[in-house]
């Protein structure tokens, strides 16, 4: 008999929990604690017709569009970071067909997942009042039934699958996050299915000893995958800093070759290496250690 509390599996096995047509939400924020290994695994598995939702989206936006994996994106902002600006191919796709991208304010996006995590159909907010964002989203104006205040009602978002990368989890999926939690807890609580990738899988005893650090309880988690450097080239708080040289090279490639550049990046970093471990081999230990050293400088003792 298998142990029901042991949810460990491989990236490839976890990717089978995502079906064509699903709405996914990816945790972390922009280039921080992104479930990068899992996202690449879904590209490798050639999932189709996905809706990818993420509060602040980095260049996974255009990887998912250019590979044909996603047909719709939902976010509040899309950019690689101040230095690199908006991803060029994402821009081209959306300028051609604005309907493939739904823009919310950051809090409105978060409240949609909070509503989902509360088991409630909507939440009220003061955000998006008077803006043109309002008419381009399903949000509606409402009056408070008690004070008659004008507010905006945002509908709950209950994603089919949440992809979350954390520093540590036990085999049952009890997951601990160091540094900012971003919206990961809301994502995990709202989604029907939750895939957790972790820098390391630790014993249940270790989780119990530091239970106040546990952000996501195992009972909402369906899969646990151990993936060291699972956010790389994005950062993972306290573990490794984002690889800005990798971003520079990517941005340069896409600036020069557009969608062909994105395809080339996918061939070189997803298809070519054949696995996330293969991708890390290509990056090399020297670089990974350097990014680890840089992260340590930023974490208060």
């Amino acid at each position: 008999m298998t142990d029901a509390t042991d949810k460990r599996m491989s990236l490839a096995e976890a990717s089978a929990l995502v079906r064509d047509g699903d709405t996914l939400v990816a945790g972390g924020c922009c280039y921080s604690r992104t479930p990068w290994a899992m996202l690449l695994e879904l590209l490798r598995a050639e999932r189709r017709d996905l809706t990818l939702a993420r509060n602040l989206m980095c260049y996974e936006s255009e990887l998912f569009l250019a590979s044909g994996a996603a047909t719709k994106l939902v976010a509040s902002w899309v950019g690689i970071g101040l230095k690199w600006g908006i991803p060029k191919v994402f821009r081209e796709y959306v300028e051609r067909d604005p309907a493939i991208y739904e823009e919310w304010s950051h809090l409105s996006f978060g409240l949609r997942l909070l509503a989902g995590s509360m088991g409630m159909p909507f939440l009220p907010t003061a955000s998006m009042l008077g803006s043109d964002l309002l008419e381009r989203t399903p949000a509606v104006e409402m009056r408070c039934p008690f004070t008659d205040q004008k507010l905006v009602a945002v509908p709950a978002l209950v994603p089919d699958v949440a992809l979350i990368h954390v520093q540590r989890a036990d085999p049952a999926g009890n997951a601990q996050i160091d540094g900012p939690v971003y919206m990961d807890v809301e994502f995990a609580r709202a989604a029907e299915t939750v895939i957790v990738t972790a820098e390391e899988i630790v014993s249940p005893d270790e989780i119990v000893r530091t239970a106040d650090r546990t952000a996501i309880p195992g009972f909402v988690v369906d899969a646990v995958v151990e993936v060291p450097f699972g956010s790389y080239p994005h950062e993972c708080h306290g573990r490794y800093e984002a690889d800005f040289d990798h971003f520079d090279a990517y941005a340069e490639l896409v600036e020069r070759d557009g969608v062909e550049g994105v395809q080339a990046y996918l061939r070189e970093n997803v298809d070519g290496p054949g696995s996330f471990a293969g991708f890390l081999d290509k990056v090399g230990a020297t670089r990974l250690l350097e990014q680890t050293r840089r992260a340590r400088e930023l974490v208060a003792a």
Binding site: C29, C30, Y31, S32, N55, L56, G81, L82, K83, H106, L107, G110, L111, L114, S127, G179, P180, V181, Y182, M183, V185, E186, E235, H237, G238, E241, A242, F244, A295, L298, V299, A300
Partner: peptide
């Protein structure tokens, strides 16, 4: 920091909270 979410933006903070709470 180059984005407001990265480690550089969290350096020596007195509190690291969720994004929803930060806005609320």
């Amino acid at each position: 920091p180059v984005s407001t979410n990265e480690m550089r933006a969290a350096h020596h903070a007195s509190m690291l909270t969720s994004i929803n709470d930060l806005f609320l």
